[in-house]
């Protein structure tokens, strides 16, 4: 298991390395001169050239790449071209919106999906199962930003329970801030939950046919205990795998959902930065997101060992 995790860690690091080269290369071919952008169209060629020198844009590709990667290792993501503040400041400012949003969606989607999946598997082939699976089939097909619009219409415009968009900031108090994140997190969570519920159900159905389940039932354990303690734990591996994969979708989903609700998160920041050709900000956010996904997948690998003790001694 340790060897396996070590290998996964190495692969994760290699992924980050290659990702940094790809991101750097892609953004290198973008048209537009950051120095020119910062100084405006009226600046003299000399002034632009001076700034290019100061920003190190006239150095070769390799020194610039190495300086960028080296900086990131010490959490220095460079300075934003348009905001003239360290990129890490911008990211921190925006992450306090995006990270709670992603975590709330993940928690909500798990809280919906696992019980629905277990419920459907326990009633396989009966009306409750059919209804749950039909609902999840529908949920998979719903675009999250459309669902978001619908939620805004019903809960913000019609019932006036929550704000339609915007973010008051955490300084306004925890409740108003959380309230602004409720609809976005539901919009993100429901389509994800639909997929996860289907995975949970089919993983459970595979396990429920095993001998140890029959043994547990035969020795007189109540149905609920067999289902939740014995069966679910053994069905967790595929569920965890899909949750890990979904985390990437969730992060990407926040980009669009933040636009629907005008939330000042990382997604909005990356759009603004792309439009303003503030490449260093784009690079920083993308690398951070990729690093997060790599880390989450490592955690998933690690969680296999926690969920399934057999894997701890294997290999």
């Amino acid at each position: 298991m340790t060897a396996y995790l070590g290998k996964r860690l190495l692969i994760g690091l290699a992924t980050l390395l290659v990702a940094s080269v790809v991101v750097f290369a892609i953004l290198e071919i973008l048209p537009g001169d950051p120095a020119r952008l910062m100084l405006g169209m009226n600046a003299t060629a000399d002034a632009v050239e001076a700034l290019r020198n100061e920003m190190g844009l006239n150095e070769g590709l390799l020194p610039r790449y190495l300086a960028w990667v080296g900086g990131m290792l010490s959490l220095d993501f460079g300075r934003s071209y348009t905001y003239s503040v360290p990129v890490i400041e911008l990211i921190r400012e925006r992450a306090i919106v995006s990270v709670p949003l992603a975590l709330m969606s993940l928690a909500l989607s798990t809280a919906i999906a696992i019980p629905v999946g277990v419920f459907a598997a326990a009633r396989r082939g009966r009306p409750a199962d059919t209804v749950a699976m039909a609902a999840s089939q529908l949920g998979v097909a719903v675009p999250n930003f459309w669902f978001a619009l619908l939620l805004v219409y019903v809960f913000a415009v019609w019932l006036r329970l929550v704000p339609a968009g915007g973010f008051p900031g955490w300084s306004a108090g925890a409740w108003p801030a959380l309230k602004a994140l409720i609809l976005p997190s539901i919009a993100l969570a429901v389509p994800q939950a639909a997929i996860l519920a289907r995975v949970t159900r089919s993983a459970l159905l595979d396990v429920l046919g095993e001998d140890f389940i029959r043994t547990a039932r035969a020795k007189g354990l109540p149905r609920g205990a067999v289902l939740w303690r014995h069966a679910l734990r053994n069905a967790m591996l595929p569920v965890l795998t899909i949750m890990g994969l979904q985390f990437g979708f969730l992060l990407a989903g926040t980009i669009i959902i933040e636009n629907v609700f005008s939330l000042p998160g990382l997604g909005r920041l990356i759009f603004q930065a792309l439009n303003q050709r503030d490449l260093i900000v784009v690079e920083g956010i993308v690398m951070l997101l990729v690093a997060t996904i790599v880390a989450v997948n490592l955690l998933v690998d690690l969680s296999y060992a926690i969920v399934d003790p057999r894997l701890r001694t294997a290999r």
Binding site: T15, L251, A252, I255, I256, L274, V286, L289, V290, I293
Partner: peptide, 10 residues
């Protein structure tokens, strides 16, 4: 490891 939508946006 790249969120597909993010890369598509880029």
């Amino acid at each position: 490891a790249f969120p597909a939508l993010l890369s598509a946006i880029m």
